[in-house]
């Protein structure tokens, strides 16, 4: 040490490191952040991913990947972009089901979910789903009125019957469909998005929870042949 000032700085640094260690280490070691929570209780694979659920990939696949996601959550958009690759690569042996769930309140999330359900009434759920994620960054800059206008533009882009679409958006059926997904998320113990589950051939639910865990699970495709 060359001077008292260097000693002072070193002392401050040591105190700072100790304070950070005292504050952060117990927080980080309390629970492995990549370790998912236990599987949900009182919910069956059949309830989480019934055969009637809208899906991509192979509808008769033995394994179903279930995602709970929010159209305005940044990581959900990343998950959506990656899910296209999963379906392209493993779609012959995997079924993919998506439910909307917003773990935190976002300005447009629910109206976007309603738009997907309204498009579903004209058989274009996944097309609208893709467009909503594509336009999520733009949507986050808009006011509620501007957001509604963008949803109408997306519906027009999909060549939906606009009268029927508008009626569906305002009708109770879309709200009921969105709420059904949200209720399922609550029963499954979803507290953050995106949140993933695997429904196995014997109807059990395996909670993967995190995006990284899905990619890890998919690394060994022999296990879900």
């Amino acid at each position: 040490m060359k001077s008292g000032e260097v000693k002072l700085f070193a002392a401050i640094l040591v105190v700072a490191i100790i304070l950070v260690a005292v504050a952060l280490v117990p927080m980080l070691t309390a629970r492995d952040p990549r370790k998912p929570a236990p599987p949900p209780r009182g919910l069956t694979g059949e309830e989480l991913a019934p055969p009637s659920a809208r899906s991509l990939g192979n509808p008769k696949a033995r394994y179903t990947l279930v995602e709970f996601g929010d159209y305005q959550c940044g990581l959900c958009k990343t998950a959506h972009d990656r899910s296209k690759g999963w379906i392209k690569k493993y779609g012959d042996r995997l079924r993919y089901v998506f439910y909307f769930y917003a773990a935190v309140t976002h300005l447009h999330s629910r109206s976007m979910a309603r738009a997907a359900e309204a498009a579903a009434e004209q058989g274009k759920y996944w097309e609208m789903h893709n467009l909503l994620f594509q336009n999520a960054p733009t949507m986050s800059k808009l006011s509620p009125k501007e957001g509604d206008e963008l949803i109408m533009k997306l519906a027009a882009k999909l060549k939906l019957d606009m009268i029927k679409f508008r009626a569906a958006l305002q009708g109770p059926s879309t709200d009921k469909a969105v709420t059904a997904g949200e209720d399922l998320a609550v029963r499954a113990g979803v507290q953050s998005t995106p949140h993933f589950f695997i429904v196995t051939p014997d109807g059990k639910i395996d909670r993967l929870q995190f995006l990284d865990n899905v990619e890890q699970w998919l690394k060994d495709p022999t296990k879900f042949k």
Binding site: M27, L28, R31, P33, D70, Q72, C73, G74, L75, K77, T78, A103, V104, T105, H106, A136, P137, S140, Q191, S192
Partner: peptide
């Protein structure tokens, strides 16, 4: 580990800010 994020008492929007694309 998003469960670690605490907000308040004056503002309550940490989850929303953390969920935005620019937070990554």
């Amino acid at each position: 580990n998003p469960a670690l994020l605490t907000c308040g008492p004056i503002v309550q929007g940490c989850d929303e800010v953390a969920a935005h694309a620019t937070s990554r």
